[in-house]
Nucleic acid binder design. Sequence first.
DNA 1: CCAAATCCCTACTTATCCCATAGGAATAAT
DNA 2: ATTATTCCTATGGGATAAGTAGGGATTTGG
Lengths: 147, 147
Amino acid sequence: MKLSQKAEYALRAMIHLARESAGGGARPATQIAKDEELPEKFLEQILSDLRKQGLVKSRRGAVGGYNLARAGGKITVGEVLRAMDGPLVPRLEVSAARSGSANLTLQCLRLVWRKLAVGISGVVDNLTLQDLCDTVEEQGAALDYSI
Amino acid sequence: MKLSQKAEYALRAMIHLARESAGGGARPATQIAKDEELPEKFLEQILSDLRKQGLVKSRRGAVGGYNLARAGGKITVGEVLRAMDGPLVPRLEVSAARSGSANLTLQCLRLVWRKLAVGISGVVDNLTLQDLCDTVEEQGAALDYSI
DNA sequence: CCAAATCCCTACTTATCCCATAGGAATAAT
DNA sequence: ATTATTCCTATGGGATAAGTAGGGATTTGG
């Protein structure tokens, strides 16, 4: 049950934009990379993907950079993660009908995946970038390293 | 957000044992492999791991095989998945203290991971092998391919 | 127009690690 | 003994993730 590094980087970049670029100006990838300690060229690719998924807007040229495509309160964590990794829960590719025992087992699996999907979606689809910024801000910076 | 094939196979084997071997006799790996259409030698390794984690009991020799270590109602899906894949949620290995912006971002991440952990655990740690068997059995075999 | 800054695209490399296979040693029943 | 099984270790192949590199396209400012 692992999330890709790419998805983590994407989320970090998005959180950065939500916090840092509320004031209009576009933020160059190089600066995001430096501030958030992300590999620069890799981040470029990620931002490009995020743009294609409609999560950020870009602007080229001398004063170019990136911005959230919508307000931070309108972008959920789930959108970001799924934009990078696809579906968040294992999908059962049922080839053909199976024999009796195997078939019952696969039904059990489906049940698990479905419940997992509900649980995970319940979290990430109801959590916006703004929520994150707000919570961390009000908690202060020195709290809860226990994960 | 992907589960390893190994974890899926393990869960399938455990569900098989929960359903099929309630009546005492140990079930050989070869038969599990055949019934559930799992790669035989790979399954051997998986069962060996499950044994080391205390989830199945094995018996060697001519009438040997595997059995659940406890009743199916006492083994959760979460135990099985974690036995194979380790923690189900990304763990943030915080190296050193970061600069201001990166640090705030990492706190946001921690918040996400923590909420995800709660959501996922809430599902898999409250779902036993017995639950799965019961649900599927009472629903009948021809239901709900929609995942 | 020119230079600088930036996004954009594509190909490549590298490393990791999952998935599986193979062969045989230990153990137990008949 | 023979047969059926678990148990252990090593190995390979292949996919995929993670990151690098280089250069083209676009915009701003002088």
